Amino acid sequence: MLKHHTIDTPAGPLTIVVGDTGGVRAAGFTAEVDELLPLIHPRLREDARPDADIGPVTGHVRSYFEGDRGALDRVVVEQRIDGEFIAHAWRVMREIKPGSPVTYSEFAQLSGRPAAIRAAAAACARNPVALFTPCHRVLRLDGSLGGYRWGLPVKRWLLDYEAA
């Protein structure tokens, strides 16, 4: 059984869905868990119940928003997708450091396929664990924000916060 909890953050409500082992399976800047459950791979998807105790992830999120920009690196994520490139790109995305955003082109290159810019963008768009796998740190070639499932104001806030 999955557990979920919504945490109030300066960027807005962040709902987190965790599995039995405490790994984050979905997260997003919404108070509606129903927006997150479809993002979880069918093999990892289960019924979800609200529970304020989602393990140490809550403390890591609070530490992040209190100034420890590396706190989210200590959070285990459980992402799965059918497709080797996107799964690899998600692992690479977790290595993009706060305050050091990259372009989609740079992200494609870091992921080992410099010409796969659209696939790199798809990895961002299909990311089920926003914030923990930081797709908000990937920008358009001209430095503009591009898209973000949870809204451009949230993406802008996160980037500004991490740059400070």
Rank of each mutant, 00 (worst) to 15 (best):
M1K: 12
K3V: 10
T6C: 11
I7C: 06
I7Q: 04
T9C: 06
T9W: 00
P10E: 00
P10I: 04
A11Y: 00
A11M: 04
G12Q: 02
P13V: 08
P13E: 03
I16H: 01
G22E: 08
G23K: 12
R25L: 14
A26W: 05
G28T: 08
T30L: 12
A31Y: 03
V33S: 03
D34L: 12
P38F: 05
I40A: 05
H41I: 08
P42T: 06
P42N: 08
P42I: 09
R43S: 14
E46R: 15
R49M: 12
P50H: 11
G59K: 05
V61K: 02
S63Y: 00
S63A: 15
Y64E: 05
Y64I: 11
F65Y: 04
E66A: 13
G67P: 01
R69I: 13
R69F: 13
R69T: 13
G70W: 09
A71D: 03
A71T: 05
L72P: 00
R74K: 15
V75W: 02
E78N: 10
R80E: 14
R80Q: 14
G83T: 06
G83C: 10
F85P: 09
R91G: 10
M93W: 02
I96L: 13
P98S: 02
P98A: 09
V102G: 11
T103C: 13
Y104V: 14
F107H: 10
Q109L: 10
L110V: 03
L110M: 15
G112C: 04
A115P: 00
A115F: 13
A120R: 12
A120I: 12
A121S: 15
C124P: 03
A125G: 15
R126G: 13
A130P: 08
L131T: 04
L131P: 05
F132G: 03
T133K: 02
T133I: 11
T133W: 01
T133F: 02
P134W: 06
C135V: 10
C135L: 10
L139W: 03
R140T: 01
D142R: 00
D142A: 00
G143A: 03
G147C: 03
Y148S: 11
Y148R: 09
R149E: 04
W150R: 09
V154M: 02
W157L: 08
W157P: 01
L158C: 06
D160I: 07
D160M: 07
A163D: 07
A164T: 08
